[in-house]
Design a protein around this nucleic acid. Sequence first.
DNA 1: AACCCGTGGAG
DNA 2: TCTCCAAGGGT
Length: 352
Amino acid sequence: MPDAGLLLAWYDRHRRSLPWRGPPGANRRPDPYRVWLSEVMLQQTTVATVGPRYSRFLARFPDVAALAAADWPAVAEEWAGLGYYARARNLHAGARSLAAQGFPDDVAGLRAIPGIGAYTAAAIAAIAFDAPVVPLDGNVERVVARLARVEAPLPAARKALDALAQGFMVQPAARARPGDFAQALFDLGATLCTPRNPACTLCPWLGGCAAQAAGVQAALPRKAPKPQRPIRHGTHFLLTDGAGRLLVRRRPETGLLGGMLEIPGTPWRAEPWPAAEALSHAPLPGLPFQALEGEARHGFTHFELRLQLLLAAPAEGDALPAGSGLAWMAAAEARAAMPTAMRRLLALWPGV
DNA sequence: AACCCGTGGAG
DNA sequence: TCTCCAAGGGT
């Protein structure tokens, strides 16, 4: 493995300025809560997306105590649109547990917090507590696979890549600055050692890269092919009152879009719903529904969703079924608290 | 091990 | 339009 000092020297000149990073050369350890929040928010989510959302979340929930004291609807609203909502549920539950226990400062303790896996535990330990570990994320996998010219495809190659990555920590330069070394690897992977067209001529490790020497850098790391996504259909029911409010429902705590607000509708299945069949799932019986033009499309990780929308305006005073979880909410407020799939559905409605 | 779990941007 | 992918984790 090449010289860790070369990468750190490059990082000191080219590091990205990001909201969750302190000023260059800061000797003060960052707040573990902020590192935790940023790492969770960055899971499978781009830096560009996270930037403003991280700042907004932190302004609303500035520390563990504030997040622990919040109720779930407030946290869900703050996370709406970011995806992978289990992250928010775990963050919230974790804050409530940490508010009493304090923040663990090693990998094993961090790993026990829900939503913190091998990567995030290593990242927090390295960045917030100077633990001599290398967090293996997609960037580090790519960088290491190229340096060592690992031809085996992911995810099977992950263990080998992790062993190679941890090997950097035998170097005193890396051990002296574990948090900076981890973030240097992230920045290298994000700005130079990119998935396509890596900028090898600018790389501080140009001389030590086996893939570049062989001319195969752009083809690594190899990945197992992904299964194709099936299509699912649903029909939802937009009920409006005379005061600009919508009938909304909170989804079950676990599973897809768990704990988030939704427009009530049918289950999502492979076959489209004939209107007559869909109506048996309407939240209020016997209403005259009008079909809205068009279809909302939304791609999830493992299936493609196509939704139709039926519109009705219940008579004032129509009672909501007891125990249904249905509630009236102002349209703008509801939209802001909903996941993207539901926002797309609402966009079919000219009312907002 | 193989699935499940969101979203937006780049190419 | 379509594929790929991003500071992954849980089951």
